[in-house]
Design a protein around this nucleic acid. Structure first.
Length: 596
RNA sequence: CGGGGAGUGGCGCAGUCUGGUAGCGCACCCGGCUGGGGGCCGGGCGGUCGCAGGUUCAAAUCCUGUCUCCCCGACCA
């Protein structure tokens, strides 16, 4: 009785539905205990001494996560609520494209991993059971899910399928870092699509684009879908979902209408002024000058007027010489794609034996196949470049591609800020990868024999895609993107609680009575509420509320009751508004509904 | 894997160089005051100094080994 003395109040204020709702709760007290006085929310005044990233510091300080070991984290109740909210958004949008949730084990027999060739991966945790059988801890679930498909799917009529689960992943990361941004154990939503053919895969992939776009829109994050690295063997398309933030481990190139991972980004280079054309290359003495900076400065030309050589060796031992502008850098991933092969840089000995003195090598006079980066002019316009002369202490000036050496055109450089795409200058920002989608093709179905019989009774390989999202990274990225000097500022969709009610006043005071009631009313309106009913000073309560970052803070004190207006502070931007004491709850709910 | 740094009450740190009774702030507990921005007064609890071995009359401190954590880089199916 004393616990719930407000039923009659509600009939009048909230209407019959809410009253009924309350009655049900009165009988089945399912309301979660979110009175701060009895909640496990250990806030800290100071960040962990060794924390660097904003999300790491704030999530620990706010009482969301606690470290267990390197790359191993517990999610405390409020943090887990955030994680669950992210997971629920993912779940809803995947269900909406016809995906079906399931659950696969983390502990796997080694055998399917051996079959797919992934057993030797260093990141894969390996262990043995008591009978000395080899086991692994799954770092994703292609092997297991494809194994099920191989067993179950017989006919083209069984396809397509979209399956997913939200399950722990284990990865023996060489370097866990930055709180929950890169951990050894984490929860991932991974989905897998199974189709009859390549066209079917394209459809499944597009469905994931739709779902992912909606998911990341709903999280409230700033995000980009960028082109990702497909790998030169068997990838058919890949995108990554990137959330820009200072602690990000990736770099993305962004321009109006363009977004790509730096690993694969392509853009038009900024122009460089070349020395005037000459009839034939001429040798100049450059004693001891083996760096671009030295040569450029000695010859008084911009670094971009130099062509530097990057000799590489293919697995079969063949050599290639990559030429690019002196102010540009080779992007190994793009080069690997261009070569359609792994490669390694040639050693100084190999260079000396095959081409010329290291530091002075160039394209003129060599018989090596030359790959010329797209940013290098081809000689029909502009002037001549400076290159190594393939003799000690000398360079050539006035070198023109095409006239002075033959080449194959490639795009293998890392783009720079200020380069353009469709005339729009790009900028480069750090970002955290929060999701990825990947067209696998038949790599796994081949090795695990996932086949079906088509309309003509012929056996066909199943076409697969795999798609991941890390809810923990969504949470951390949101912290990174929206934090201010006071703490976290959650987007509405991810906040651990919609509203935090702060009461100022002793046990038994009018403020308490009012706040108790408001707490219940807000919950009855469908809001999740954290109620700071602790016997603490106002400063401490405000500081904690701002640290935790619920979108809306409602303060009930003597002052508010006397003035007839209650302060409602919007966390994002720390904007204060007021709601009338009369009908406070619906007014708070309306205010909440307008937040980001 | 390479480089750098750190392990001392719950948190943040001093003390280590130069061996000699383990300290500070916050937090916590008790009493009181205060009550719209981490407030005040008084009284308390709590640490075998990461672990193991060694040197020494004596080790947080010196020596050896080892474990753990963080940062930078490499790596990131």
């Amino acid at each position: 009785m004393a616990a719930r003395p407000r039923a009659d109040f509600r009939i009048g204020t909230l209407g019959f539905t809410a009253w009924l709702h309350h009655l049900v709760r009165f009988i089945y007290p399912i309301t979660p205990m979110t009175r701060l006085s009895g909640y496990f929310l250990p806030t800290e005044r100071e960040p962990p001494a060794d924390a660097e990233a904003v999300s790491h510091k704030l999530m620990v300080r706010a009482g969301l996560i606690r470290q267990v070991g390197a790359g191993l984290w517990s999610w405390l109740p409020a943090g887990w609520r955030v994680h669950q909210r992210a997971a629920q958004i993912i779940r809803e949008e995947l269900d909406a494209i016809g995906a079906h949730e399931m659950l696969m084990p983390v502990l796997n027999p080694a055998e399917p991993w051996r079959r797919t060739g992934r057993y030797p991966i260093d990141e894969l945790f390996k262990l043995k059971d008591r009978r000395d059988a080899d086991l692994v801890l799954a770092l994703s679930h292609e092997e297991i899910v494809t194994g099920h498909i191989a067993q179950v799917v017989r006919s083209y009529r069984d396809l397509p399928l979209i399956l997913y689960h939200i399950q722990t992943k284990e990865r023996d990361e060489p370097r866990p870092r930055a709180g929950v941004l890169r951990t050894r154990e984490f929860i991932m939503k991974d989905s897998y699509t199974f189709d009859r053919d390549r066209e079917g895969l394209d459809v499944a992939y597009d469905k994931h684009v739709t779902a992912y776009d909606r998911i990341f829109d709903r999280t409230g994050l700033e995000w980009y879908r960028v082109e990702g690295d497909v790998g030169y063997m068997g990838g058919f398309g890949a995108h990554e979902y990137m959330a820009p933030c200072p602690a990000g481990e990736n770099e993305i190139a962004l321009a109006e209408g363009y977004a790509a991972n730096m690993e694969v980004a392509s853009a038009d280079a900024q122009p460089v002024e070349l020395p005037a054309r000459v009839d034939a290359p001429e040798e100049v003495s450059t004693p001891g000058m083996t760096t671009v900076a030295q040569v450029a400065s000695a010859l008084e030309v911009p670094a971009g007027a130099l062509l530097k050589a990057y000799p590489v060796v293919l697995p079969e031992g063949e050599m290639r010489m990559v030429m690019l502008r002196g102010d540009h850098r080779v992007n190994d991933i793009k080069l690997r794609l261009a070569l359609a092969s792994d490669f390694r840089p040639a050693t100084a000995e190999e260079v000396a034996a095959r081409i010329g003195p290291p530091g002075f090598i160039g394209p003129v006079g060599t018989d090596l196949p030359i790959l010329l980066d797209a940013a290098v002019y081809d000689g029909v316009r502009e002037g001549g470049y400076v290159t190594g002369a393939n003799t000690p202490d000398a360079h050539l000036r006035g070198v023109e591609p095409g006239r002075d050496f033959a080449f194959e055109r490639v795009d293998v450089r890392s783009v720079l800020a200020g380069d353009t795409v469709n005339g729009q200058a790009i900028r480069i920002e750090p970002a955290i990868e929060v999701g990825n989608i990947f067209k696998l093709g038949t790599r796994y179905s081949e090795r695990l024999e996932a086949t079906y019989l088509d309309e003509h009774g012929r056996s066909q390989l199943v076409w697969m895609g795999s798609y991941g999202i890390g809810p923990a990274r969504i949470a951390a990225a949101a912290v990174e993107q929206f934090a201010d000097e006071k703490g976290i500022s959650w987007p509405r969709s991810l906040a651990p609680f919609d509203v935090e009610v702060v009461v100022l006043g002793r046990e038994g005071s009018d403020e308490r009575t009012f706040a108790d009631r408001l707490y219940g009313e807000l919950q009855d309106l469908g809001l999740s509420v954290l109620y700071d009913d602790r016997d603490a000073g106002p400063g401490e309560k405000f500081a904690d509320a701002e640290l935790l970052g619920c979108p809306l803070r409602v303060t009930v004190g003597k002052r508010s009751l006397a003035s007839g207006e209650i302060e409602a502070q919007i966390r994002r931007g720390m904007v204060s508004t007021t709601v009338p004491v009369e009908d406070a709850a619906p007014a708070v709910a309306r205010a909440w509904g307008e937040l980001p």
